[in-house]
Design a binder for these strands. Structure first.
Lengths: 351, 351
DNA sequence: ATCACTTGTGGGAGCGCTCCCACACTACCT
DNA sequence: AGGTAGTGTGGGAGCGCTCCCACAAGTGAT
């Protein structure tokens, strides 16, 4: 017996070779047809396609992956527990964009949660085995080792929300600076003059950019920035309450608040109410994210919308380019791939 | 030059062969160590493991898949659009159980949405290419061609919620019969005598079983079943309203309602209120699913809880067995693999 | 001592592709 | 006529594993 040569014969899935025999051509030619190479005559192509159809041929992915050294799969890595993934519409919107953009291609999307340490180790193993051609990274914290690991393994990756202005990975972001600026400009145009800002977690780059945008809007309008009106929050409701109380103590005369997130705004709103301030009559309130909270708040919250679905699409675009570029040892690091998408101010009754 | 032999050499990932050379053993031996075969001496095993560690060897999945004809991946197929997946806690709970059970193994989980026709076609192609070793099917409609396709392709599959009593696929279900019976027994024990039932969609097997359980509970308690007290619903809120109105018209004296789902119960509750019936004083109400709706209803709804997370775990157990069994052309179809898990009645103020 | 197992090991063959070289042909220039 | 490209095609080699056969060496019963 020659090895295990007969394994899986007899009625198994047809192979390239069998298609070639049926079409009366060579293996290489069938491969070219399957992969859409232009160097095939129309007659031959038709013959091969007929054979493929008759035999119900479907390429063996494992063989292709082995020979071509690629997997035709990319991973969306969520460094959070499943629970948060389902709780936040952010991920669902992002996934929608990613899925839509990917449906044009042959790429398979894998969704990988890496919330626990255990899961992180599994993921590391998984990536080390190069089981995907590229990685989409969402909601990565500043000190996460994941991005560096990906660089080390030379796996193409795109991050949503760069970790800093010096981000080395390809990244997609919304225009935090512009979004914050438009929120403040909106408040100014409504005649507000004493506009406070409750920031997000300042170790998140996007939160820093929002502070920058806040400052820029004021300065561009000829106002000077009063540091007393800026108080650090952390994206949470509790943080919003704390910061609002502090701001109210320091500057009881403030007439507007721009919060770093909708959740923060919800906390601020509560404190404002308790202090007897009416919204928007006494104090105008603007949030960030345009989440469900914003729509359901009383009064409905003006908020800055980020185009999350489009961000997902853009991430796929970038990633597919990275993957394609890598094939013929491309001009790496020449042009940095950073995409920034515009935000939109959604005006509601709170301002 | 011999072919493209040098491709990927120089600093590429180490191969089995290199590990073997380093450890001073043959290829076969390394393979045995990697795959945990017991037929290796302790000394040799240690030497190989050292070499693996030194070289940072990680097996090439594609090569393994090609040689062994398996993929080490299973798919969780959701024949719904992403939106519903995120909206319903059912999926999130199930995923939690599946993930937990799978984390013990080397299997990779793929999440595949097949809501649209386009996505369905892609899925069919995907499955035909045998890109997974097994499939988990959730929330499948009675007339879905997917299960048959899987049988045809001889891909191991487990379905959550059998399509009928004659389900051929391995399946995991909660005890719909017992759940319904315990709900009705509960109402009887509370002194209710005229207990109505709003069914789920009767083309869903689980809904039929609930009706059976309802009947059995009444009969076992020595009551005869009044068909006038059974009205078909469809799991929706609107269906609940319609059915409740009808029941109230037919039997204005009813003093309890067992609804086929919490959502249905919500619809029924609304109609009861409008008819001036107090819950639970005039009419007791029990739902099914123990969803968030149940907890937040006014008054909180007594409901039958299904152990969804455990169902996820059980599905993985079954599927892994199916996959293992299939390898050596096993005794197929002898014992049908049907698991039924117990439900639990969660009593709240509505009954 | 002989036979029969058992245990551990090496390595050939093969999984089904892609890549690339070689080789026909054809077409168009000198 | 000879050269030089360009097109289409066939098929060898190799991707990195697993499977299995062959065989060495040890162990015990006869």
């Amino acid at each position: 017996m020659a090895g295990h040569g007969a394994r899986g014969r007899s009625g198994g899935r047809p192979t390239l070779e069998e298609v070639a025999a049926r079409a009366g051509v060579g293996r290489g030619t069938v491969s070219r047809v399957i992969n859409g190479s232009p160097r095939v005559s129309d007659a031959t192509r038709a013959a091969v396609e007929a054979a493929v159809a008759e035999l119900g041929y479907v390429p063996n992915t494992a063989a292709r992956a082995l020979a071509a050294n690629r997997t035709d799969a990319i991973a969306l890595v969520v460094p959070e527990p499943e629970t948060r993934f389902f709780a936040e519409p952010y991920f669902s919107d992002m996934l929608k964009g990613v899925g839509a953009e990917l449906s044009e291609t042959e790429m398979q999307l894998l969704l990988i949660f890496a919330g626990s340490d255990r899961e992180r180790r599994r993921l590391a193993q998984y990536l080390a085995a190069h089981r995907v051609d590229g990685v989409l990274l969402v909601s990565v914290h500043a000190d996460d080792p994941l991005p560096d690991m990906l660089s080390q393994l030379e796996i193409p990756a795109v991050i949503s929300g760069p970790r800093s202005a010096a981000e080395t990975l390809a990244s997609v972001d919304s225009d935090n600076f512009g979004g914050a600026r438009s929120a403040v400009e909106h408040l100014l145009s409504r005649g507000r003059r004493s506009i406070a800002h409750i920031t997000g977690r300042l170790d998140v780059y996007g939160a820093q950019r929002r502070v920058d945008g806040y400052r820029a809007a004021l300065r561009d309008a000829g106002h000077e920035v009063d540091e007393q009106l800026i108080e650090a929050g952390d994206f949470t409701e509790e943080g919003g309450r704390r910061a609002m109380a502090e701001l109210l103590r320091r500057r009881p005369d403030l007439d507007a608040v721009f919060a770093g997130s909708d959740v923060t705004a919800a906390g601020a709103r509560q404190v404002l109410r308790e202090a007897g301030r009416r919204i928007p009559d006494d104090v105008a309130l603007v949030g960030y994210d345009d989440s469900a909270i914003a729509r359901h708040m009383e009064p409905p919250l003006t908020s800055v919308r980020q185009p999350i679905e489009e961000m997902g699409r853009a991430m796929i675009d970038l990633l597919l380019n990275e993957i394609a570029d890598r094939r013929p040892a491309a001009s790496r690091g020449l042009d940095r791939h950073q995409v920034v998408l515009a935000t939109e101010l959604v005006e509601r009754a709170s301002s």
